[in-house]
C-alpha cells in the first residue's frame, strides 16, 4: 500500500524555522510509523534525523508527535492512522535536528528526584522484605521507559520548561511508595517546590500519552497527597508514612 507521510523538518545549520515535507512511500499493511521513517531515510531522504534503538517499545527512544498525539513510532501501526500521517518532534524540547530533541534537561530532572532506593538503617542480613500488597503500590510506575511522551504532552510543561514534569514525578512515585525506601525527606524539596508537583493541573494528557499505559496523573495525585500528609502531621513529616500495611511476616 501507499502511505502519505508529512514530517516536520528542521536543520538548525540551514533552516530558519521548521517546515513540513510530505513523502509518498510504499508500505506493508503491518508496518509501523518507525518502518515508514526507515523507508523515508533509506530510500528517499538520507538526511532525515530521528532516534530509535530497540524498535519494540522498550527503550523509549522514538517518542514523537504522531497525528497530533505523543506516541512511540515503533508502536503505531500505519494502517490505523489517518493520512497524511503527520510526524513532529516532541514539544517543549529544543530540536537538535528534525525529530531529534535535546533531552538533557529532562534527564537532569530525572536525577533531581533521586530515582533510586534510599535507606538510612544498616543493611539487613538478607534481603529487605516486602509484602505483595506493598509491592503492588508502586507496580504501575515501575513500567516507565523515560521516553518523555508524558512530559511533552503536558500543557503546564509547554508553558514553563522549569516544571519537573510527569516523567520525573512518576520516577519519584516509584520510590516514594516503596515500603523499603526512606528518602521521602530528601525528595520532598524538589517535589514540593514551585516548579514541582503543584504545577500539575490534572489535565490527563500525560496519561493519554504514556505508551506503557501508566496512570501518570494518578501517580502525580498520589505524590501530591503524600506531600500534603507530610506537611499536615504536627511532629514533622512521618518518615515512614509510606510503610502503611505493616512489615511482611518473614
Amino acid at each position: 500500500m501507499e502511505i502519505r507521510i508529512k514530517i516536520q523538518r528542521f536543520d538548525p545549520e540551514r533552516d530558519e524555522a521548521p517546515h513540513w515535507r510530505q513523502y509518498q512511500v510504499g508500505a506493508q499493511p503491518m508496518d509501523r510509523v518507525l518502518d515508514v521513517l526507515h523507508t523515508v531515510r533509506w530510500q528517499h531522504d538520507g538526511g532525515l534525523a530521528f532516534r530509535r534503538s530497540c524498535g519494540h517499545g522498550i527503550c523509549g527512544s522514538d517518542a514523537m508527535e504522531i497525528n497530533g498525539r505523543n506516541r512511540l513510532a515503533c508502536k503505531e501501526l500505519v494502517k490505523s492512522l489517518r493520512q497524511p500521517i503527520t510526524v513532529a518532534p516532541m514539544r517543549g524540547f529544543r530540536v537538535v535536528k528534525d525529530l531529534m530533541v535535546d533531552m538533557t534537561a529532562f534527564f537532569e530532572k530525572y536525577r533531581a528526584v533521586r530515582p533510586y532506593l534510599m535507606t538510612d538503617d544498616a543493611p539487613p542480613e538478607k534481603e529487605r522484605l516486602q509484602s505483595p500488597e506493598q509491592r503492588e503500590r508502586y507496580d504501575d510506575t515501575t513500567k516507565c521507559i523515560l521516553c518523555g511522551a508524558c512530559t511533552t504532552a503536558c500543557p503546564s510543561f509547554w508553558a514553563n520548561g522549569k516544571f519537573l514534569g510527569p516523567a520525573a514525578i512518576v520516577q519519584a512515585h516509584r520510590f516514594l511508595m516503596d515500603s523499603r525506601d526512606q528518602g521521602a525527606e530528601q525528595r520532598a524539596g524538589v517535589l514540593n517546590d514551585a516548579s514541582g508537583v503543584w504545577r500539575c493541573r490534572t489535565i490527563f494528557n500525560c496519561t493519554d500519552a504514556c505508551p506503557r499505559g501508566i496512570q501518570v496523573t494518578k501517580a502525580i495525585g498520589d505524590v501530591k497527597k503524600l506531600l500534603v500528609a507530610r506537611s499536615a502531621s504536627p511532629d514533622g513529616p512521618p518518615a515512614r508514612a509510606q510503610r502503611a500495611g505493616g512489615p511482611p511476616s518473614a
Binding site: 497530533g68 489535565i203 494528557n205 496523573t217
Partner: peptide, 9 residues
Amino acid sequence: SRYRGGIGQ
C-alpha cells in the same frame, strides 16, 4: 499545530 489532547485538555 494543535496538540490533540483529550477531554482533560
